[in-house]
Design a protein around this nucleic acid. Sequence first.
DNA 1: CCTACCGATCGGTAGG
DNA 2: CCTACCGATCGGTAGG
Lengths: 211, 211
Amino acid sequence: MTKAAGAARQGTAPRNYPKGERRRAQIIEAAFTAFGQVGYRNASMVQLAAACGVSRAGLLHHFPTKESLLEAVLEQRERQDDAHFFRTGAADRDGLEYFASMIRLVAHNQANPVIVSLFAVLSSEATAADHPARPYFVARYERARGQMQSAIHDLSARGLLRPHVDPSTLAADLISLIDGLQVQWLLSPETIDMPRHLRNVLRTVIGVEVP
Amino acid sequence: MTKAAGAARQGTAPRNYPKGERRRAQIIEAAFTAFGQVGYRNASMVQLAAACGVSRAGLLHHFPTKESLLEAVLEQRERQDDAHFFRTGAADRDGLEYFASMIRLVAHNQANPVIVSLFAVLSSEATAADHPARPYFVARYERARGQMQSAIHDLSARGLLRPHVDPSTLAADLISLIDGLQVQWLLSPETIDMPRHLRNVLRTVIGVEVP
DNA sequence: CCTACCGATCGGTAGG
DNA sequence: CCTACCGATCGGTAGG
């Protein structure tokens, strides 16, 4: 997947062709839901077109290949996450703020099952060697571990980590926790409260209460 | 999925039709791999037949529907897990033994990527409302949480849990950790060592070293 | 040369 | 286990 084309198109203001941009946004939203429900490979361009009230040829005018649509969906999801973390204080400098922001993100996701489904389904589907989203997820997890590692290092330097906690593996562990909770929550939403679970685990790791 | 038919067939000794039973086992093994690589819905009966050196009609002689094959694959995986936990000491009575057995199971799985793939891919695919394996996974997670909850209760009664640990949410948290680690390991096998991560987390939760 | 689509059809493949 | 099929649907492309 080439990121350049899609990113440039997304960066363009929609003022010149408002109708087309609205249609694009509608298609991305429908694909977001469909990929989350049945995965990328099992989602059908015909069904997506029908859901958007356009013909398949109309759909292919906006997204010439199924992969280009996947790319646009992942970019939109990326922008949503970025918006959440930029809106929220000093999450990139203060470790406690980072985890406070993470709890809010998990709570926000729990209120939007479509978001949870998309990543739970796509991330495991993308573990296949030939999956078009595999490079995206490899890079995304590397970046996520790195960002959380910075937050953990900040907490460690301030002496806020409990003893017996190994900071070297903690980032991958907490990301695994969040991912795994999503699957159990999707299967038993009444049994699992994801923000509560995350907060409980953070209490066993961090010596002070996360705001 | 009806469990009775498959379970009865599996329970039958293969002595009467050794060739058919060998073929059945071969097909289950091939399906195990295929479902893990591309998921249940995306796996094709034609490709499975070809991989086993039989025609599609021949495959359908052993498994009349795709769902019956899914059922057989899940039953085999269930028996493998049971065998592991029964072989291993007093995992059902001693909380420390339970977690020691869990670490060994994770190490065993890491040596067999096919097993990891199958459950990482199927469990998230099965979160779809109409997926045939959804009831299986809902029940499996409920049972897994219950068994681990017993082990945690044993540790709690013996005073082996660290303070600040909430035993009420811990089972779902540790299962989430194991599940989430599988996805990151499948994407970056050189970065993640699953048994090491699990042992590190258990050190922050349990006051003594797990054997 | 641009947009926003349309109806029809290509060669292959799905589960049964 | 085989050949011979079914109704449908897949992602992608044609000219207009």
